[in-house]
Structure formats: structure tokens, C-alpha cells
Design a protein around this nucleic acid. Sequence first.
DNA 1: TCTGGGGTCCTAGGACCC
DNA 2: TCTGGGGTCCTAGGACCC
Length: 353
Amino acid sequence: MRDWILHVDLDQFIAAVEILRHPELRGKPVVVGGSGDPTQPRTVAATATYEAREHGIHSGMPLRTALKRCPEAIFLPSDPPAYEAASAHVMAVLREFPVRVEIWGWDEAFLGATTDDPETLAATIRQTVRERTQLSCSIGIGDNKHQAKLASGLAKPAGIYRLTSDNWAEIMNDRPTDALWGIGAKISKKLAALGLHTVAELAAADPTHLARHFGPTNGPWYRYLALGKGEAEIVTTPWIARGHSRETTFQHDLTDETDIAHHVADLANQVAHDAREAGRDITRVSVKVRFTPFLTRTRQSKLPAPTTDPATIQQAALTILTRFDLTRPVRLLGVAVDYTLPRADQPTLDTVE
DNA sequence: TCTGGGGTCCTAGGACCC
DNA sequence: TCTGGGGTCCTAGGACCC
């Protein structure tokens, strides 16, 4: 018996939940996002079914573009409470197995398991999730979270795949660096400019050289990823948020300063009430302004003392707003806050159990 | 492709202090 | 006083992820 990390990834989660609610849409091109009106500007797809993808539609694509690519597609509004409920159901099923469960968003979880036969365990989990929730998932098996996460991607759709230190080099070496979990388009391009195109090349790179270009933490970490290493600890206690934010993109630009201030005050109020509901103290307030065409600026300030008082948060946000040059049209406003972290040396409800 | 919303973590530079 | 070096805190921005 030995320890394994499994990564359970629900296939096409949001679309799958919507198909369950609207069975007549099965097999059709369906796009989910915004309020479901594909003629609305500045609204993007949260997800698209495989049938919609065949028309070149993908998540993040503006709904208006999706409509042009596939006029017969069905557009549905996003319904987060429904996805939360479906997600909770799946997580409850996972917890029935003799595994440690770390929830990683709506449609993902890492499992810590001790077994001789991880494939059989994964197959049982996949089958049980399907029977109990009618949702399909892919399961990756690895020595750590990074390997398991990539393995579930290789397993899609509805498969099981093992990626461990034994076959890492064989499977990953020739892939581009952005195949790694944590390296995206920007870093991949910078690495390529240094002559590092593949996972194998990055794995063989000099950590000092990488540190010079990407910083003392990030540089060596990229090489670490390329070697197939990663975190292997499963944390079963609920995640404690570091902060919280609310933002709105306006369909039509805002130009009136009073109007802008009202929206910022509203967002600050919402964030303050969210914090109070979550029982968290706020230490810092940030305001985000996106100007047309797409220029984003943030300003922030640390509060004199942690607070949950909405009036204080609102006033702080409005004061920060005065530091922007608001002569250009505004397409987005946002307010974000940082929370105080509960003291680790004090027992909390989460750690007492 | 005229580009959502909600998060996390890291870095660089300036201010300030000794 | 023309000028070192280190440490910490704060802010703005960038990159990544779902």
C-alpha cells in the first residue's frame, strides 16, 4: 500500500448541470454565460458544450461572437446557485470514500488515498459519481497535486490516467512549457525567448539563470514544475479566503463622476456586507477602474485598523476613487478588500472539530 | 474574439528607520 | 555632512487559475 493523489475533474461541469435541467438540449450546441442574451455586449461565455465547440466557440468568447459563429446555438443564463448545489452533491459523494478530500473549486477536488490499486479506486469513484449525480468526471492519478491535475486533463473526457514520477519524462518532456500547471502564455513566451521551449529544456535549465529572469521564488519554481514536482499534502479543512471583491462591467461607459462615485459606494457596501456575513475583518481596500478601451488601474490603501463597518469601507473606497483621473470613459468599476487572517495559534471553529 | 467575475501569489520600487 | 547598508512596510501591477 502506498499514498496517491487523485484529481477529480467534472467534465463540462456547468454545461452538464444545465443539460440535466434541460434534457431536451442534449446533443445541441449550448452556450452558458451572462444573462443568456447573446446580443448583449461585454458578456462572455462561461462554458460551451462540445457541440458548440465544434463551431469554434469556447469559454471566454464574447456571446456576440458566439452567436455569429453559430446562430442556431442555445444561450442560457449563468445560474451559480444551481452549480453550487450540484457541486456540493458531488463533494458529498467523494467524502463517502476512504479518502481525504480537498475541494478545489466547483468542479474539482484532490483526494488523498492509500491503496495498491489507484485505478480501481478511481474507476469506482467515477462510476459512483455518475450513478448518484448523473455527472461525468475524469480522474488523474499522481504522486502529487501537479501530476494528478495534469493527469486528469490527459484523461478527458471521462477517463482515468496515471502520471507519476515514473512516466513523467516520457509523457511530458516534449510538451510545451505552458502544459505545466502554473505556466501560462506569458511566461511560456518569455521562456521560449530564453531558448526554453519544452518541459525537458526547462527541467534542465540553470535555476540561478531562471531566478535572474523571473525572481528568486518563481524562477526556480518553474524548473521544479518541469521536473514533475509539486505539493502532495491534502488539506481537508475549509479554505479561509484571503480577501473578497465585487466588480461590474457596464454595457455603456460611465462618464459622469457622481454616477461613478455612486457605483463605487454601492460596490463597497456590498463587499462590506459580504465580509460581515462571513465574519471577517477588513484590513485594506482597493478600487479598480477599467477605462475604455481596456486600460485597468488600481489604487489601494490600508485601513488604520481592521473593521467590518460598511460606512468606513464606503468612505475609504470613495477617498481612494479621488486618486484616479476620471476624465476618460469608464467601462468597469470594482472594490476589493483584504481580510485579517485568523491567528494560527488560536483554536478556531475550523480546527477544533 | 472589442475582451466577465472572483480569486491567489509574487515582484519591484519607494518611504522610512536605524 | 553628498552619503553605506540592511530591514520592514506599503503600493501598483502582473501572471496565473477556475
